Computed example of a mutant assay.
Amino acid sequence: MIAFLTGRVAARGVASAVIDVGGVGMTVQCTPSALSRLHVGETGTVATSLVVREDSLALFGFADEDEKYLFERLQTASGVGPRLALAMLSVHSPSGLRHAVSTEDTAALTRVPGIGKKGAQRIVLELQGKLDAPVPTDGAPPGAGATASAGAPDGAWRGQVVSGLVNLGWSAKDAEAAASAVASEAEETDDVAALLRSALRRLSRA
Rank of each mutant, 00 (worst) to 15 (best):
L131E: 09
G116Y: 09
S198R: 12
G22C: 06
G139Q: 12
G139S: 09
V161G: 08
A108C: 07
L89I: 00
G159H: 09
E67T: 04
A152T: 11
T45D: 03
D66H: 11
G129I: 02
R205F: 05
P153S: 13
A107G: 08
L196M: 13
A63D: 02
V182C: 09
E176S: 09
S180A: 14
F62Q: 05
R98T: 07
T27P: 06
T110S: 12
L86N: 02
W157S: 02
A175H: 01
G151A: 06
L127H: 03
S184R: 10
S78I: 03
G145D: 13
V135H: 13
V192Q: 06
E185M: 15
L97T: 01
M88S: 03
F71Y: 02
L57M: 14
F4M: 10
R197W: 04
D132K: 15
V21G: 09
G79H: 07
V91W: 09
S180C: 07
G116C: 11
R83T: 02
S78L: 06
P136K: 05
V192T: 12
A77M: 04
A179V: 05
L165M: 10
P136A: 12
G23R: 08
K118I: 03
A87P: 00
L97C: 06
G79A: 06
P94E: 00
G169S: 05
R202I: 12
L57P: 01
E126R: 12
E54T: 01
A172V: 12
S184Y: 03
V18T: 15
V51G: 10
D154T: 13
P141C: 09
A146F: 11
M1D: 09
S180L: 15
F4I: 13
T110E: 08
E104C: 13
A120R: 00
V52C: 05
